[in-house]
Write a protein that binds this DNA or RNA. Sequence first.
DNA 1: CCCAATTGCTTGAGAGTTCAAGTAAGCTGG
DNA 2: CCAGCTTACTTGAACTCTCAAGCAATTGGG
Lengths: 165, 165
Amino acid sequence: MTRWLDDDEQRTWRAFLAASQLVQEELDRQLLRDSGMPHAYYTVLVRLSEAPGRTLRMSELAAQVNSSQSRLSHAVKRLEERGWVRREPCAADKRVSWAVLTDRGFEVLAAAAPGHVEAVRQSLFDRLDPDQVRRLAEICAAVLAGSAPDPETSPDPGPGAPAAP
Amino acid sequence: MTRWLDDDEQRTWRAFLAASQLVQEELDRQLLRDSGMPHAYYTVLVRLSEAPGRTLRMSELAAQVNSSQSRLSHAVKRLEERGWVRREPCAADKRVSWAVLTDRGFEVLAAAAPGHVEAVRQSLFDRLDPDQVRRLAEICAAVLAGSAPDPETSPDPGPGAPAAP
DNA sequence: CCCAATTGCTTGAGAGTTCAAGTAAGCTGG
DNA sequence: CCAGCTTACTTGAACTCTCAAGCAATTGGG
């Protein structure tokens, strides 16, 4: 009954795993070596830096970085210890925590970004021609569309936005 | 000096990260839930099952599963504790360890494979049309070619049917 | 109202991964 | 033939991630 993979599918599958693991590993290593943070943390800093007031609710941030709330909570705790992120309570809904990128965190991110972007180019874009990049985008979109269609995609700031810095 | 990503590249990059993480996560979760092992361990069992005598040197196994020797050593230790893999010393070169898939390990793999293959289809192949699958294979090959100076390394193992006894 | 279900987030324990060292065993050139 | 390098693998500590609970605030049906 099992729909086994034929040889072509098998090769494609193994190549996909190897390639995606390779890219992730190269990035993670580069960031850890050059900036002292894992890629997951870098992503957190990036999303915060792009948010209005460099601030997001924990749950919104978790959604943006494709992380469980638990994982994000642990990560933000570490980032807080480093002084790169700060938590603030929400007055309107006391269950909510705001995560805020500190100035120091922003500086660290700014310092890390050029090396990271260069690594992304070397690991992915420089290895593909423009057609392949376009097709990769389509393929990834199709994969993502295949699961978890989240109805609430609009970035609703929610109640009680914090004061802008 | 930094070759920043333009908006299209930015979107492609984020889609690639999200898609590859999604697939890996879905697989890892499925295997852990249904068969009690992480995907990395499954991969080890697969490669051993395909090897002659269901046996490989640790270093060869590490190369086949794209793992550091350290990671593999820890993993095999766990698999040994479960009775799925056994280590044997090599008489010819006493530095070498053979990893051997036990009968019990083979049974576990055989039981896990159908569900895993189904998950691979649902997570990847069922979301793409045949053209996209073909292009994905090309793209992954290009990415791997970009940094694989070792011609002897095969890509990461996948869900394949366990080799016949 | 009010109590149960839900929501938002945190915590703790257990596992896996990584890097740096560490241990042998084999090889090599003087 | 043996000092010193290399190879093969293991170990330990630090860290991250996951799952399952847990807690407090909020919501909603009766």
